[in-house]
C-alpha cells in the first residue's frame, strides 16, 4: 500500500514472511526443534538439586546470568535475521532489543518446559523451581515457571512462537524510538502474517489466551528489581563477574 515509502525488504507476502521468521527462529533457538520431539532429557537427581541449592547466592546468580546471556545472544541473532530489522536505525535496533530481548527469552523457555513434571531444561537436565532456591528470589522464579507452564499449555507451533517473538521485538510502542512509523510498518507486516497463519491453521483462539503485554513487562521489571536487590547485597559481584552483555542490559 506504500510502494515508495517501504523498502524492498518490507514488501513480502505474508506466507513468505512467516517462512522467513520460522527459519530465523529455528536457526537461533536452543534446544533445536528436532530435539524437542520425544525428548529424553533426564531430570536432576535429589543430590544434584541439593548441590545447586548449596551454591553460594553470588555463584548461582552468576551461573544463571551466564545462561540468560547465552539466550539473549541467540535472540540478538534472531533479530538480525528478521527481515527488515537491520534496516531500522542502529539506535532503534538497540532500543527494541534492550526492551524486548528478555521477553523473547522468557517466551522461548516454554519450548523446553515439561508440563508433566513442571520442570524446565537447565544446563542439560530438567529442573523444577526448587533448584533455584539459592538465588533468593522465589517469587520471580515462581512467576517465570507460571509463565512457562501457561505458554506450554497453548501448545504453540514453532511458526507461532517465531512470529510471537518477532512481535515482542518489533514493537512500535517502545519508548525512545527515533523512527516509530518505520517500526510500526514492520510490526504491521508481522502482525498480518501472524493473523493469516492463525486463520489458516484455525488457531485464532490463541490470541485471547496469550500472556498480556503487561504481564511480560511486569516479569521483566521483577527481574530488574531482583538484579538491583542482588547488587545491594553483593556489591561488586555484578561488575566483576557477570557477563558484560547482561550488565549492559540489566545493570
Amino acid at each position: 500500500s506504500c510502494p515508495h515509502a517501504c523498502p524492498q525488504a518490507l514488501r513480502v507476502p505474508s506466507e513468505l514472511l512467516t517462512q522467513s521468521v520460522l527459519l530465523s527462529h529455528r536457526a537461533t533457538c536452543h534446544p533445536r526443534a528436532e530435539d524437542l520431539q520425544g525428548h529424553r532429557w533426564a531430570t536432576f537427581s535429589r543430590e544434584e538439586i541439593c548441590a545447586y541449592q548449596s551454591q553460594p547466592t553470588a555463584e548461582m546468580w552468576q551461573r544463571c546470568a551466564r545462561r540468560v546471556t547465552e539466550a539473549i545472544e541467540r535472540v540478538v541473532e534472531f533479530a538480525k535475521r528478521l527481515r527488515g530489522f537491520l534496516e531500522l536505525s542502529q539506535h532503534d535496533q538497540i532500543v527494541l532489543l534492550k526492551a524486548g530481548a528478555m521477553e523473547v527469552v522468557l517466551v522461548r523457555m516454554c519450548r523446553a518446559f515439561d508440563a508433566a513434571t513442571r520442570t524446565v531444561l537447565f544446563e542439560g537436565k530438567l529442573a523444577g523451581p526448587e533448584l533455584f532456591r539459592s538465588l533468593g528470589c522465589p517469587e520471580l522464579v515462581a512467576s517465570i515457571f507460571d509463565l512457562a507452564q501457561g505458554l506450554s499449555a497453548l501448545r504453540c507451533s514453532e511458526s507461532e512462537l517465531g512470529l510471537l517473538s518477532a512481535l515482542l521485538l518489533v514493537n512500535a510502542g517502545r519508548p525512545w524510538l527515533q523512527d516509530r512509523p518505520r517500526v510500526a510498518r514492520l510490526q504491521g507486516h508481522l502482525d498480518v502474517a501472524f493473523r493469516v497463519l492463525l486463520r489458516r491453521t484455525r488457531r485464532e483462539g490463541l490470541l485471547a489466551r496469550l500472556p498480556s503485554p503487561g504481564r511480560l513487562r511486569a516479569l521483566c521489571s521483577q527481574h530488574l528489581e531482583q538484579v538491583q536487590a542482588f547488587r545491594r547485597l553483593h556489591p561488586g559481584v555484578v561488575s566483576a563477574a557477570f557477563p558484560p552483555l547482561y550488565r549492559e542490559l540489566f545493570a
Partner: peptide, 17 residues
C-alpha cells in the same frame, strides 16, 4: 545510546555467526 550499549552495538554490527 550506542555508547552505553557497546556490546549490543558490536553484536549488531558483526556478521552472522
Amino acid at each position: 545510546l550506542q555508547e552505553k550499549h557497546r556490546i549490543l552495538h558490536k553484536l549488531l554490527q558483526n556478521g552472522n555467526s
